[in-house]
């Protein structure tokens, strides 16, 4: 049995290696990997990828919209999935070009990528993680990592959601508790770890936004953990 399975995998690999991969036809995947660095603050990809602020994108090509188990989608995307939308190149291309034009209530707070070639490159890169499961590396630190390294001791802090609720009143002058995302991203229901990573990226002035640099800059590690614990619990 074992022998048989190994042989089958070997055969698949051989076919892949000898056939020009489809991804090369839609764009330049290695250029796309550079663009991916903008996406990975919210999305994970590769072996062991989990849902984060956004759903993981393994197998996104051919996936039904709004269908990834355990991820809280906006009503609009969930409905599109029920209506039968399957993500394929043309639809992903349009979505990435202007997410809000495609799904007005999407919580993906990304302005969109206007350059057609760049979209094609990005999709070529993403497609590697869809068509050929064999392409998913054993460990993919570049693809699956976050946009900012945070000291594990900081990530390990258990936040107090009650304190977070008090502190959150500073956030809600701009960020809506409905999770709506128009001009200012929705932040509710984020996994706590992603929240902490994002806030420390602002605190360390790694992410550029001046308001958020100021807000995060004066929050202590405990306060950031408290906010993360609170916002994780809030339902969209």
């Amino acid at each position: 049995m074992n022998w048989f399975r190994n042989a089958a995998i070997g055969l698949t690999v051989a076919i892949c290696a000898s056939t020009p991969s489809f991804s090369n036809e839609i764009g330049n995947a290695s250029d796309g990997e550079k663009i991916w660095s903008e996406c990975k603050s919210c999305h994970a990809l590769g072996e062991g990828a989990k849902n984060r602020v956004g759903p993981h994108l393994n197998g996104i090509f051919g996936r039904r919209a709004g269908s990834e188990e355990g991820f809280k989608y906006s009503n609009g995307l969930a409905r599109m999935g029920k209506d039968g939308l399957i993500w394929e190149f043309d639809l992903l291309d349009r979505y990435i070009e202007n997410p809000k034009a495609f799904a007005s209530d999407t919580r993906m707070s990304y302005r969109g990528l206007k350059d057609e070639q760049k979209r094609a490159d990005l999709l070529a890169f993403l497609r590697r993680y869809s068509d050929n499961p064999g392409d998913i590396p054993e460990a993919a630190p570049t693809a699956a990592g976050t946009d900012h390294d945070v000291d594990p001791a900081i990530l390990a802090i258990q936040g107090d959601p009650e304190y977070g609720e008090y502190l959150s009143s500073e956030c809600t002058s701009c960020h809506q508790m409905t999770g709506d995302n128009d001009g200012i991203p929705g932040i509710i229901g984020w996994p706590a770890e992603d929240f902490v990573i994002a806030m420390h990226a602002y605190k360390d002035k790694f992410r550029p936004h001046p308001v958020m640099q100021m807000m995060a800059g004066r929050l202590s590690n405990d306060e950031i953990a408290a906010l993360a614990a609170y916002f994780e619990e809030v339902e969209p």
Partner: peptide, 17 residues
């Protein structure tokens, strides 16, 4: 433009607050 769009988002945020 992003700054303007942010102000529109802030308006929605503060008025619901």
């Amino acid at each position: 433009q992003a700054t303007y769009e942010e102000s529109v988002g802030w308006y929605a945020g503060i008025t619901s607050d």
